[in-house]
């Protein structure tokens, strides 16, 4: 009797479960896609259309807003600053992060666990808390309002990710491959170059792109630490209250699109960071 009831109830439960599942998926998709859609529609519409409502599902592909944005005074410089800061961040994050990731995956040393924990802990301090002392220090050392100074801060933000991604990357390469190379005539550095690097290179590139995007998107430190040499995010933030709506949307799109494309390109390596196999 009970068994029959349960059996009859099962499909119902399963069906409603499926609906909840689908609704959840739809909600999550909307959460991510609606802002992007709004941004795209407005950025690709004529300046006059931007303030209008209701929105069209498909933009009119009028490049007026974007043209206006790119010709706006200071935008080109800010964009160039952003690229420079992100590039230096990328080099710093990989140059320091990849060796740390390699060390974590290959060597046992005292304090290894503490080190791993500290790497993540660097993300626990809110940037606003650090911004003021940093600004003071930067002014004293002359690093304020420079590309390198800002890149240093951004590298600090990007490093934990660079370390963790490359750590999982190197851990995925069997140590026997390196040992085989040693027995076949390689020194340790040579084995790294001949065997580990070719296998890790796509992942290292992905981790570099991720560092680039972190810097590209960062706004707080950029706004506090630069005055003349604003990055694009800082520039947009600064001119937010004075610029017309279509400029904001075009600027937003110009920021979001490269980041989205980059992250999409390297997504499988970012999953690897959380321990999901990257093969």
């Amino acid at each position: 009797m009970t068994g029959a009831t349960t059996a009859a109830a099962m499909p119902d439960v399963r069906r409603s479960g499926r609906w909840v599942f689908r609704a959840g998926i739809a909600l999550l998709c909307a959460w991510v896609l609606v802002p992007i859609w709004l941004l795209m529609v407005n950025a690709l519409s004529a300046p006059a259309e931007v303030a209008g409502f209701p929105k069209r599902l498909w933009p009119s592909f009028d490049l007026g807003s974007l043209t206006f944005f790119f010709r706006f005074r200071g935008v080109a410089e800010a964009l160039w600053n952003s690229v420079q800061v992100a590039a230096v961040t990328m080099v710093l994050a990989i140059g320091l992060g990849a060796p740390a990731g390699y060390a974590l995956s290959r060597f046992d040393f005292p304090g290894k666990e503490a080190f791993r924990f500290l790497v993540i802990m660097t993300r626990a301090f809110p940037l606003p808390l650090l911004a003021l002392p940093l600004a003071v220090m930067f002014i004293r050392t002359g690093l304020d309002d420079t590309i390198v100074g800002l890149a240093l801060v951004h590298a600090t933000l990007a490093l934990p990710f660079a370390v963790l991604i490359t750590y999982s990357l190197f851990s995925g390469i069997p140590v026997e491959l390196e040992e085989a190379a040693w027995t076949l005539g390689c020194s340790r550095p040579k084995a790294f170059v001949k065997v580990v690097l070719p296998l890790a290179l796509p992942g290292i590139a992905a981790s570099a792109v991720f560092a680039f995007v972190i810097s590209w998107n960062e706004v707080f430190a950029a706004a506090v630490l630069t005055i003349q040499n604003r990055t694009l995010t800082a520039f947009l933030l600064q001119s937010l209250d004075v610029s017309p709506l279509h400029l904001k949307f075009a600027g937003g799109a110009a920021l979001v699109i490269p980041a989205l494309v980059f992250i999409f390109a390297v997504r499988k390596y970012l999953f690897a960071m959380w321990g999901i196999a990257n093969r």
Partner: peptide, 28 residues
Amino acid sequence: PPRARGIAMVFQNYAVFPHLTVYENIAF
């Protein structure tokens, strides 16, 4: 170091380099 000992080793999990062909593995 291993490279200076005049040895060759065969590993349990083969350790064949995945980014090289069989030819280049043997030639390594």
